[in-house]
Design a protein around this nucleic acid. Structure first.
Length: 86
DNA sequence: CATTTGACGCCAA
DNA sequence: TTTGGCGCCAAAT
């Protein structure tokens, strides 16, 4: 039985370089659009380099958080995407 | 099983 | 535009 959490990881793992999803989008793809907050909690407790969790940002365009520091996240996004938003 | 937690989202002021 | 407050949810305790 795959948990919501597993689903979230599958989705995030599938994000292509240059693609950025919001927590809400990830939640929707994982099966529950209203679980954006839970997605953050999940990505927070489970760090895994195979998962490009730095490509997940907030709906309002701000960067959100990151286990290894927001600066690091911003830097990675900047390398992959050209613009990160605000 | 009951509570707490927090990388969120949205709206009113 | 910036803040504050409330709702929502899966996980962790």
């Amino acid at each position: 039985m795959i948990s919501f959490k597993q689903k979230v990881f599958s989705v995030v793992r599938g994000i292509l370089a240059g693609e950025v999803l919001t927590y809400k989008e990830v939640a929707k793809r994982a099966g529950n659009e209203k679980a954006a907050r839970a997605v953050g909690a999940i990505l927070r407790t489970n760090f895994d380099p195979k998962i490009p969790c730095h490509r997940v940002v907030k709906s309002d365009g701000t960067i959100g958080g990151y286990n290894r520091g927001v600066s690091e996240k911003r830097r990675k996004l900047r390398r992959e995407n050209a613009m990160v938003g605000k």
